[in-house]
């Protein structure tokens, strides 16, 4: 389907609201103010994403996945690069940040912590989307994995792998940059429903 700039604008706003909510909770957990930036949102077909993925590289990310079913179905990921993940873990657990974040290995302890952080962010975004679009969805329990982005996409069933929505956000916690990505992978029918629902709300508003 054709995606108009207004559609992207709407999705960006919903992601923005969700990330804001997630960041508010993280701010309370860390006891630090979190500075937010406007998320960048883009939408790809799997082919287009293949090209982008080759530019993104094969960096391994900490990813928290959430399967959703209902008016629209698919898989959502909250993705955090290793160095950002370490900053967040240090901020939340109150440890002193170290210089070589990217080189530190993750342990099962980190995985548990990251699962909760990712859960907070992804719930913010999914909550914001379903709230505004007034859609009821059912969800799986979140699960944690470490993988590169192409592998994450491959994990989603073929029928749900037709539209890929990528939102990139930056948060600054004690002046440290935390990068996060939200990836929503859906079948084209689901994606059309999502966009159509958003257009309806805008049209209602215009009436």
């Amino acid at each position: 389907m054709e995606i108009a700039p207004q559609d992207l604008d709407g999705i960006r706003e919903l992601v923005n609201i969700g990330v804001g909510k997630g960041a508010g909770i993280l701010s309370e957990m860390t006891g630090s103010t979190i500075e937010l930036t406007i998320p960048e949102v883009s939408i790809y077909t799997p082919d287009e994403f293949g090209q982008l993925a080759s530019q993104i590289g094969t960096e391994r990310y900490s990813a928290i996945s959430l399967d959703f079913r209902g008016a629209f179905s698919g898989m959502a990921y909250s993705i955090i690069p290793a160095d950002s993940a370490h900053i967040l873990i240090d901020a939340i657990t109150g440890e002193e940040p170290s210089d070589n974040g990217a080189e530190r290995p993750f342990t099962s302890i980190h995985a548990e912590t990251l699962k909760e952080i990712g859960n907070i962010l992804i719930n913010g975004v999914m909550g914001s989307i379903t709230n505004v679009l007034k859609s009821q969805l059912t969800y799986s329990l979140p699960s944690y994995c470490e993988a590169d982005i192409p592998s994450l996409i491959q994990k989603v069933g073929q029928e749900h792998r037709e539209a890929i929505l990528l939102a990139e956000t930056h948060m600054f916690i004690r002046n440290l940059n935390i990068e996060g990505k939200i990836l929503m992978i859906m079948g084209s029918a689901s994606f059309e429903i999502l966009v159509e629902r958003m257009r309806e709300i805008s049209r209602d508003s215009e009436a």
Binding site: N16, I17, G18, V19, G20, K21, A23, G24, S27, E28, T33, I34, L36, S128
Partner: peptide
């Protein structure tokens, strides 16, 4: 009217 829910904000 903002998405930032932090008390500090």
């Amino acid at each position: 009217l903002t998405s930032d829910i932090q008390d500090a904000t």
